[in-house]
């Protein structure tokens, strides 16, 4: 079984909130110094889902990432978790692509990789969180898509997925090859353990440029972007938290209750 997982390298979402800075001019986030970027949390769970399938069914996991040359780190992370190989898709033309552009680049890389049974993506990226690359990619590849998986229950000629909905779960099936986007409910990803951690560290991750995957310049033209970010701001919330006190914790609690009872 061949699984392709698409991952993204993002600014660490767990930086202290006060350290989050943006440049409104370029509409970009300024990464704080000394904080290494990480694999997007949902994408890491997609890798985990792939590894769980590989544990059960054997097969090969290929990981691809559109990003800077540093994205080799997230590929290595995926390899240390259990993926077999990976490619970084890095080209000046790939910078700041919208969802369509990213999905297009991924589709070209997937076509170059060749045969596959499943493509896995995170439900959304932990940075811009557009939440559409998976679905658009499936549309380009002309394969079925199942979103928000919390478990991939089985794979034969169909993939059987448990997906999360607001009031419970659905079991959904689609014929292979299919694309599945993975949600965090699938559970904690494994800690890259033992041997793989050391081996992945030494691996050289191949970098594919636009011409390597046959990506056409017209498709990457920023002027044709489907969506454009025209502004970026940090919301200011001027809230002075009123700390309720009391002689005892119980009294503080009672004071709080009285205060709130008048407001609701």
């Amino acid at each position: 079984m061949n699984i392709i997982v698409c991952v993204k390298q993002v600014l660490d979402p767990e930086i202290p909130p006060a350290k989050f800075k943006i440049d409104p001019e370029t509409k970009q986030v300024i990464p704080p110094p000394g904080v290494p970027p990480v694999i997007s949390v949902y994408d890491e769970r997609a890798v985990e889902a792939a590894c769980r399938l590989k544990d059960k069914l054997k097969g090969k996991i290929t990981v691809i990432s559109v990003g800077s040359d540093k994205a080799a780190d997230v590929i290595k992370h995926a390899i240390s978790m259990g993926a077999d190989e990976g490619f970084v898709l890095c080209d000046p033309a790939f910078e700041n692509l919208d969802s369509f552009g990213t999905a297009y680049v991924l589709s070209k890389a997937i076509q170059k990789i060749g045969a596959y049974d499943l493509v896995l993506c995170g439900r959304q990226a932990a940075d811009w969180g557009a939440g559409q690359v998976g679905s658009i990619l499936a549309e380009i590849l002309a394969i079925p898509v199942i979103t928000l998986a919390c478990d991939i229950e089985g794979v034969d000629t169909n993939v059987r997925v448990k997906r999360i909905v607001s009031d419970g779960y659905e079991i959904v099936e689609a014929p292979l090859p299919s694309l599945v986007t993975v949600s965090s409910e699938i559970g904690l990803p494994r800690l890259p353990a033992g041997v793989r951690l050391m081996m992945a560290r030494k691996k050289v991750i191949p970098v594919w440029k636009a011409q390597d995957i046959g990506a056409e310049a017209s498709q990457l033209d920023k002027g044709n972007a489907h969506t454009e970010i025209t502004g970026l701001s940090v919301p200011t919330r001027k809230i002075e938290c009123e700390i309720i006190t009391g002689a005892t914790p119980g009294e503080a609690a009672a004071n709080l209750a009285s205060k709130l009872a008048n407001l609701i």
């Binding site: 600014l11 979402p13 909130p17 989050f20 943006i22 509409k27 986030v29 932990a126 940075d127 811009w128 969180g129 970010i229 025209t230 502004g231 970026l232 701001s233 940090v234 919301p235």
Partner: peptide
């Protein structure tokens, strides 16, 4: 960015 920023 997880609610840290708003984009237009």
């Amino acid at each position: 960015f997880g609610g840290n920023a708003h984009a237009t």
